[in-house]
Design a binder for these strands. Structure first.
Lengths: 169, 169
DNA sequence: TCCAAACCCTTGGATGTCCTAGTATATTGC
DNA sequence: GCAATATACTAGGACATCCAAGGGTTTGGA
């Protein structure tokens, strides 16, 4: 997984698709495959930066989300909805963050079904440091040009809205 | 995970970044987060289409790769390199595909360290059907415009090359 | 009022990915 | 020719994601 390939495997796949008579979907296939691979590369970079903090991306996302909440606390189902992951994934992440004393569970004051998750002081401090590291090492060195960033945000935003992620503008 | 949110959570995150004085990296952060989320949506679509065939995306990718090999067989290390996943992931996929009689392991004729994986007749047939389904249900309905597809292929291609995935242009 | 339906979280199981060894085979260098 | 290094695959463990199922809580209609 370390040595660069002599040729782009996705371009090869696109050529294979065309050669087999699927030219009409070869380009979207290549674009989708490229998105999958790019995600893999980005995730690896992010996890590398977060590792020294003892965080994974899933746990970091939860910490970051909580750090932006006015009260510093959110119901688990709300976190699940905003992070757009399955509720069991949130349970899993909270279990580990709680064990590390970065968040705490507390019962919802009026709804007995709901559990609130709240940042601890350590959690808030670590979130801030991890965010600074990600900004410096990943987001600040994405390698995408400004125009490409804008284009990605717009195109993928449309895609996500059409896919049913959200409903506004 | 089913109900659409009233607002785009990634746009909200971008605003939060700007509000906290990280405006210089807010846009790349949003673009990268959008890529992560888009990959999640696409993977879910793909797995939904593949489920009736008893395949996951990882196993499908291996079948598809083998179906394009001249001899229908590849060394495991070659498959690992071309799919750009860890060798243990290939071992895992081959274990399951072999159990389903879709591929077979055989020793390399001259290098005793190497194991070849080869499509069975069932494997080749299933790969063809699964590809047709993916072309019809996912790649043919990506929702990306033609111009956007071209742009994605170009921008993400540059990113992947810069990231060290491959060396040719 | 009261019970069925809806909702919330957790547990257990299946998959996939990576990492760190460990074993076996090849290749290289002295 | 033989030891040291490199390469190929596999085993075991940590994490994350999803689904299915279960137990507790709330809500809403009969």
């Amino acid at each position: 997984m370390g040595t660069p390939l002599p040729r782009d495997p996705i371009a090869d796949a696109q050529r294979n698709w065309e050669r087999h008579g699927w030219g009409d979907v070869a380009a979207p296939m290549a674009a989708i495959t490229a998105i999958m691979r790019t995600q893999q590369i980005l995730l690896a970079r992010i996890e590398t930066v977060l590792k020294p903090f003892g965080l994974t991306f899933a746990r970091y996302e939860l910490l970051a989300l909580l750090s932006f909440a006015r009260s510093g606390a959110l119901p688990m189902n709300k976190a699940s909805a905003l992070l757009q992951v399955h509720p069991t994934s949130v349970t899993n992440a909270v279990d580990r963050l709680e064990k590390a004393a970065l968040v705490a569970r507390s019962p919802h004051p009026t709804d007995g079904r709901t559990t609130l998750i709240e940042l601890t002081a350590d959690g808030r401090s670590l979130a801030k440091k991890a965010t600074a590291a990600l900004n410096a090492e990943v987001f600040g060195k994405s390698g995408f040009g400004d125009d490409d960033v804008d284009h990605l945000i717009r195109v993928l935003g449309t895609f996500r809205r059409d896919a049913g992620d959200f409903t506004d503008d």
